[in-house]
Amino acid sequence: MVTIGNIQLPDFPLLLAPMEDVSDPPFRAVCKANGADLMYTEFISSEGLIRDAAKSVQKLDIFEYERPIGIQLFGSDVETMGECARIASRVEPDLIDINYGCPVKNVACRGAGAALLQDVPKMVRMTESVVKATHLPVTVKTRLGWDDNTKNIGEVAERLQDIGIKALTVHGRTRVQMYKGDADWTLIGKIKENPRITIPIFGNGDIDSPEKALLYKNRYGVDGVMIGRASIGYPWIFNEIKYFLRTGQQLTPPTIADRVTVCRQHLDFSIRWKGEIVGLFEMRRHYANYFKGLPDFKPYRMRLVTSDSYNEVSAILNEIQETYSIIYEVAA
């Protein structure tokens, strides 16, 4: 069993990464139903939350079935981050997570996210401010360092543990790498080998198959893995990894009917949460991922992303299921 403060997780838990414009409540719902053990909100701007910006406040929406659930915060001001942690704690998540890993320009260039890897003393002060501001466990997600010359994650892990974080997730790339190249988990493994480190260490980056999850578990000794991009349109990956770790065998891939069913569940939640107009619009980014690999799917995708009617989208999904189920039955 893996413990984060008072949160108890199964052995080798699978975490859903916080992803901007992706890991909202509808997406988290289908991932939870398919095996995610711990999930996080999209990252929330501390400055936006302080000024009560509607987009930031809405990201505080969490639901009982999601637990354990963490709220992830980012910002560049030490005092503001502490106040933001107090605000976020009022909605009673299970933990508060700090984003020191986001590499995108409009975050890092404002001194937030991965930019803090260039100023470890400030990162320590900010983390301490958040720890003192909440009664909840505080965790951190970060990267190996800013660039190849400043891979300081070993120092970061020790210093953040010393001021009270309860778990650390490390993405195996530097900020300069963004999401290019292969993730390097070597330094993540070295953190686990450090006798000073007693908190759970989770690895993140390029986990896109059950085989790789098992390989990295054995090779680097991490306490669990965080999965991001591989879960988009494919929430089944969590249960597939669990089954493979338990049995050494592959689960049967989702059928066309499975894909349509989960896509529809995602759509229905999106509409319940944000209303039909916004719910339909925000689902458009997901259709191609749910039906990735289907031959000649482009005409269906174009119809899905241009429809502004739930009934019409539902009818298209029914048509997709009927058409591709026949194709795959014939192929079989």
Rank of each mutant, 00 (worst) to 15 (best):
Gly113Leu: 09
Leu116Ala: 07
Asp119Pro: 03
Lys122Ile: 02
Met123Trp: 00
Met123Arg: 02
Arg125Met: 07
Arg125Phe: 01
Thr127Ile: 06
Thr127Met: 05
Glu128Leu: 09
Val130Ser: 09
Ala133His: 04
Thr134Gln: 07
His135Thr: 07
His135Lys: 09
Thr139Trp: 08
Arg143Lys: 04
Asn149Phe: 10
Ile153Gln: 06
Glu155Asn: 08
Ala157Met: 03
Ala157Thr: 00
Lys166His: 11
Leu168Asp: 06
Leu168Cys: 07
Thr169Lys: 01
Val170Asn: 08
Val170Pro: 07
His171Pro: 05
Arg173Gly: 02
Thr174Tyr: 14
Thr174Arg: 14
Thr174Trp: 12
Val176Lys: 15
Tyr179Cys: 13
Lys180His: 14
Gly181Ala: 12
Asp182Leu: 14
Asp184Thr: 06
Trp185Thr: 01
Ile188Cys: 05
Lys190Tyr: 04
Lys192Tyr: 04
Asn194Ala: 09
Pro195Thr: 08
Arg196Lys: 14
Ile197Lys: 11
Thr198Arg: 15
Thr198Ile: 06
Phe202Cys: 05
Gly203Phe: 04
Asn204Gln: 10
Asn204Glu: 04
Gly205Arg: 10
Asp206Trp: 05
Asp206His: 12
Asp208Gln: 07
Ser209Trp: 08
Ala213Gly: 05
Leu214Glu: 13
Leu215Ala: 14
Tyr216Gly: 02
Asn218Glu: 14
Arg219His: 04
Arg219Ile: 00
Val225Gly: 00
Val225Gln: 09
Val225Trp: 03
Gly228Ala: 15
Gly233Lys: 13
Tyr234Asn: 15
Pro235Ile: 01
Ile237Cys: 12
Asn239Gly: 02
Asn239Tyr: 07
Glu240Trp: 02
Lys242Ala: 12
Tyr243Ala: 15
Arg246Ile: 01
Arg246Pro: 05
Gln249Phe: 06
Leu251Trp: 01
Pro254Ile: 03
